[in-house]
Design a protein around this nucleic acid. Structure first.
Length: 418
DNA sequence: TCTGGGGTCCTAGGACCC
DNA sequence: TCTGGGGTCCTAGGACCC
């Protein structure tokens, strides 16, 4: 069995822990710049305040009903999350932290899972003040369904989907829109073909699902029928890309302010990189205009580069980010959002080098491999990894199209190795 | 010179999640 | 007036290889 443990109304619940007078009162938490509503207590949900709604649209409801409003405090939520997760971790053999407020628990080979889950709910609530719900089933996707029911249709906030007839009767009433992995676009497509419930969906032919919804749709299909596709991953994985972005509280129309923001974002990205002991080989910068202001002028620009050598050095990342920003900056637009992405992340102590095709018949090539071997032997295995090797036929053509950052690679390597 | 099947690598962008 | 931030996975298509 797999369980999904999910904190109820997490951010709103966190605020409540430190402010007892909020008990049984409507509470909402707002996003950056107090823009959107991103968490609601049950009382706030009952008032008809919608998830993701702009705060100004809900202003009337908020004022009339004395709703308590908070700006986000991510330091607090992160800290509370760690506490909840470590309690859960102490009570189950293996589990996966799926998001700030959710964890999948692995109960394979364990029969008293409901007892353990009830106990987890009690202990977490008693020692952190955060209420949680747990759904149990054979697969992650079904555990999500069970969790949904636990939250909305049970008093105890726990629900077990343990036999196939129970699963079928639940799926017959479960709207397809609520299934994990069905978003706006897939919902529209499925509705077009008359699929309204999860049961309608599992009755579809697997080949049709694969063809129309790719491999992800097929996995969803199988998981809903009880076939395991997503395993509980108990070891925490490093991020594969890291992004820092913000919406400005006002429109920006000059490059100085943008440079300032991009520098900060780049700094935060490098900090996150170093924290997970990684380096990035790819840097991207994007800026968007205000998409609500003038739709015909909406502009979204993104530029990126691959670096010669992976880095997590703040100065290098900032410099590259500013260069990218300058290459995409355009006047006459009012920028509203900016961000930096670092990607192709590799462990800190490794250097990755792409041997591009223009070097394939380089007379020093065999020499190079000898040097790489030598470096790896003295510095440790995989200090330098050769990612791809090209063919001489490609040489001339490639060379013309290469961006400057590639062409130095050969010299850099020779310098490193000599 | 023309032809095809079976690959790899890379990028851009869609769709989804919390 | 005011509309979030941070991720993952997958596919298509170009350009190239044998």
């Amino acid at each position: 069995m797999i369980a999904l443990a999910d904190c109820n109304n997490f951010y709103a619940s966190c605020e409540r822990v430190f402010n007892p007078k909020l008990k049984n009162k409507p509470v909402v938490v707002l996003s950056n710049n107090d823009g959107c509503i991103i968490a609601r207590s049950n009382e706030a949900k009952k008032l008809g305040i919608r998830m993701g709604e702009p705060a100004f649209k809900a202003k009337d409801i908020i004022e009339k009903n004395d709703v308590y409003v908070f700006s986000t405090n991510f330091a607090l939520y992160g800290d509370m999350s760690n506490r909840v997760m470590s309690i859960i971790g102490n009570m189950v053999p293996s589990f996966e932290v799926y998001s700030i407020d959710e964890a999948f628990l692995n109960f394979s080979g364990i029969s008293n899972y409901t007892d353990i889950c009830s106990k987890i709910m009690k202990v977490v609530n008693k020692s952190t003040g955060i209420p949680i719900s747990i759904g149990l089933a054979k697969t992650k996707t079904l555990a999500k369904v069970a969790n949904h029911i636990a939250k909305k249709h049970t008093k105890e906030n726990i629900f077990v989907l343990d036999n196939s007839s129970k699963v079928l009767s639940v799926l017959k009433r479960f709207p397809i829109s609520e299934i994990w992995g069905i978003g706006r676009s897939r919902l529209k497509m499925l509705n077009f073909y008359g699929v309204k419930t999860a049961y309608d969906f599992i009755k579809l032919d697997e080949r049709w699902v694969k063809q129309n919804m790719t491999i992800e749709g097929l996995r969803m299909h199988k998981e809903l029928k009880g076939e395991l596709c997503y395993l509980v991953q108990y070891s925490s994985q490093n991020k594969k890309s890291i992004c820092t972005s913000r919406t400005f509280s006002r429109d920006i129309d000059n490059i100085e302010d943008l440079e300032q923001a991009i520098s900060n974002h780049a700094m935060r990205c490098s900090e996150k990189l170093r924290k997970q002991k990684s380096s990035a080989r790819y840097i991207g910068v994007f800026i968007n205009t205000n998409r609500f202001k003038n739709q015909s002028q909406y502009l979204s620009s993104h530029r990126s580069i691959l670096l010669d050598t992976a880095t997590n050095d703040s100065i290098e990342i900032i410099k590259a980010s500013i260069r990218l920003l300058r290459s995409i900056y355009q006047k006459n637009y009012y920028y509203k959002k900016s961000g930096v992405i670092v990607g192709d992340i590799i462990p800190e102590n490794e250097v990755q080098i792409n041997l591009f095709n223009q070097f394939a018949d380089h007379p020093q090539r065999s020499d190079l491999f000898r040097k790489i071997d030598l470096i790896n032997k003295t510095m440790g295995r995989d200090t330098i990894r050769v990612l791809s090797q090209g063919h001489p036929r490609n040489w001339k053509l490639k060379q013309e199209n290469l961006s400057p950052c590639y062409t130095t690679r050969w010299d850099d390597l020779l310098r490193i190795s000599s």
